[in-house]
Design a protein around this nucleic acid. Structure first.
Lengths: 344, 344
DNA sequence: AATAACCCCGTTATCGCTAACACATTGAAG
DNA sequence: CTTCAATGTGTTAGCGATAACGGGGTTATT
């Protein structure tokens, strides 16, 4: 572990017999530099083990190459897919994702956004449309493109890429009602922090009311219901309270699976005795037995579309001619009918 | 979206009637500044919407506050837990994780490490002990603490936090043989890129040989076997080829679940007809019916221990008195016996 | 009362790089 | 044989912050 400080561009320049500026140019793809000096410089850099300092580069050029992104949790396949899509879409741009986790907590999001802003990202992506007042101010004043994803907020900060969670809930409710189920429940958390889940529940409830069905089987838990164990516990509670329940939508496929296992343990057959639907298009919904009906959210696509928005906004910035218009990209969701809601 | 460039420390200084240096001090927790000027400065900063530029701060102080971390995939609960643990352990240190994904590809890891090195992180964490030659050089010459996790490499670059995947494979094999199973298989991928999976298989095979059992049911697929569908396909293949298979270990709990579903579809009962074990201590292994025997890898703990190593190394750096000694933290794994291998 | 020991805060000099401009050289166009 | 554009390279001046040093004022020490 050599304690000597790493070589700088000047060191490389000296060794190659050119000026530092020429080194800077030679190391970039687009800049003008002759092939011969470029080769000479590359060799000198290699010899010294030189690595560009993008901290200094960023300070000078006022371009850090960062895209700051917050997601609620890393333990969530949906958000993970979004990040994969975003990385994919940003791959050749030289932009690097600076990822942070809010733990489904908008106060934590605020802290994270402030920390990210210090890094002077070139664009900021946040999950969801609900933020603290201070966080909204930070974002609005950041001076860079802001994109809210996984939702289509009624009053967006700037751009948004997502879908309506209310409509998603409505879609599933309509599907279940169309199937002929009457006593329909919803398992999810009623957290003010995470609006996406409660939006889906809201849409779900709307439809039940519109179509004259009881809404007393909704929103069972005050705690978040995200994982399998929580889904199982919520299902136990629901069935104990309403043994006549015929169909249930869960806030995620994971809780749906947990709920399904809970039914199985009680000797209830899915879908014969009770139908179960999930959300998110997780792997498990396709691989469980029975396979679980779910609503695919286009998670990966949210990432790729977000990347497109970022790139186009940053390109526009160079033009500077036309005014930036806020974009609002709607991602299509898809209801995947599977065995868990299809009486054979 | 104000196009005017963001305010600098000098702007705040001017407004508060002090020098920029004083602003710098006032905005830090430890530096000396009187409470009155500190308040004045905070107000001025707030009024201007000033946010510290850590790009410039990093250049000047030679401390970026970054810890660069590479993991194979974001779609993996084990690595996700490690990151959670790492974030947790780093929370109060002011250090920020710069996360990248190698996609189980050491060439991609090399690219990522080079990109990260440009950011001048204060420590580097890489998953696994197998790297390209060039990548090893980069890491060794980085001048900052390097920590390899999720493995205990025979020739570590510097520090390591993990467990022996060979021993993990051995443990599960011994358990299954002890249980009385004879025709034992292993489902996993044979990728040279990802040594962890094949290490586990290797240890597994060692034990089978040592204890006089056939090893012809090993390493079914040349492709990686990580998800449920791949596990199911591999199980189908294995049973078709060796219908007398009595027990199988899968490279992960996800493939174990897929394999189990595959058995169920064929009418094979788990564990009565065939026993299945997984790896990783995933949620699903505790929630599936039957519950799946697994080897808990201490993923979260790997993260917290890594954080400790980083913090102690950076503290040592300040002392500068004692020589840095490479640390080698061994994380305990735990075999969780569940229904999928326990004939009732 | 005098010396030392702080506590605050300002000044100066970078940190490593790149934008912007200047300048020389070359080749093509008129 | 100019004139002009294109190309490659050097020079200068920061980008926005902090380290290091120093000096004035206040409080402790003997």
């Amino acid at each position: 572990m050599p304690r000597s400080k790493p070589p700088t561009m000047s060191d490389v320049a000296k060794l190659a017999g050119v000026s530092p500026m020429t080194v800077s140019r030679a190391l970039r793809p687009n800049a003008s530099a002759s092939e011969s000096t470029r080769k000479k410089i590359r060799e000198a850099a290699d010899q010294l083990g030189y690595v560009l300092d993008s901290t200094a580069a960023g300070l000078s050029s006022r371009k850090t190459g960062f895209v700051a992104v917050t997601i609620p949790s890393i333990n969530n396949a949906n958000f993970a897919n979004t990040i994969r899509g975003l990385n994919e879409g940003l791959q050749d741009s030289g932009l690097q994702v600076l990822l942070g986790f809010t733990d489904y907590n908008i106060k934590e999001e605020e802290r994270l956004v402030e920390a990210f802003l210090r890094r002077r990202p070139e664009a900021i992506v946040v999950t969801g449309g609900v933020h603290t007042e201070r966080c909204r101010r930070y974002l609005a004043a950041s001076g860079v493109p802001v994109i809210e994803i996984w939702d289509l907020p009624s009053s967006p900060i700037e751009h948004s890429v997502g879908f309506s969670n209310v409509k998603a809930g409505r879609a599933m409710a309509n599907y279940l009602v169309d199937k002929g189920y009457k006593n329909i429940g919803f398992i999810g958390g009623n957290t003010k922090q995470d609006a996406r889940g409660s939006d889906r529940c809201e849409g779900f409830a709307e439809v039940l009311e519109e179509r004259g069905l009881s809404t007393e089987r909704l929103r069972i838990s005050e705690e978040p219901v995200r994982n399998m164990a929580q889904g199982a516990a919520a299902m136990d509670y629901l069935i104990d309270k309403h043994p006549d329940t015929q169909a249930v939508m869960c806030a995620s496929d994971l809780s749906a699976f947990g709920a399904m296992m809970s039914c199985q343990r009680r000797g209830l057959k899915v879908p014969e005795d009770i139908a179960i639907a999930g959300f998110g298009g997780y792997d498990i919904s396709a691989n469980a037995i029975p396979q679980i009906t779910t609503l695919e959210a286009g998670d990966y696509q949210i990432g790729t579309e977000t990347a497109k928005v970022i790139l186009s906004q940053l390109a526009d910035d160079n033009d500077e001619t036309e005014e930036r218009a806020p974009q609002r990209i709607k991602i299509a969701t898809q209801l995947l009918e599977r065995e868990s809601t299809s009486p054979k």
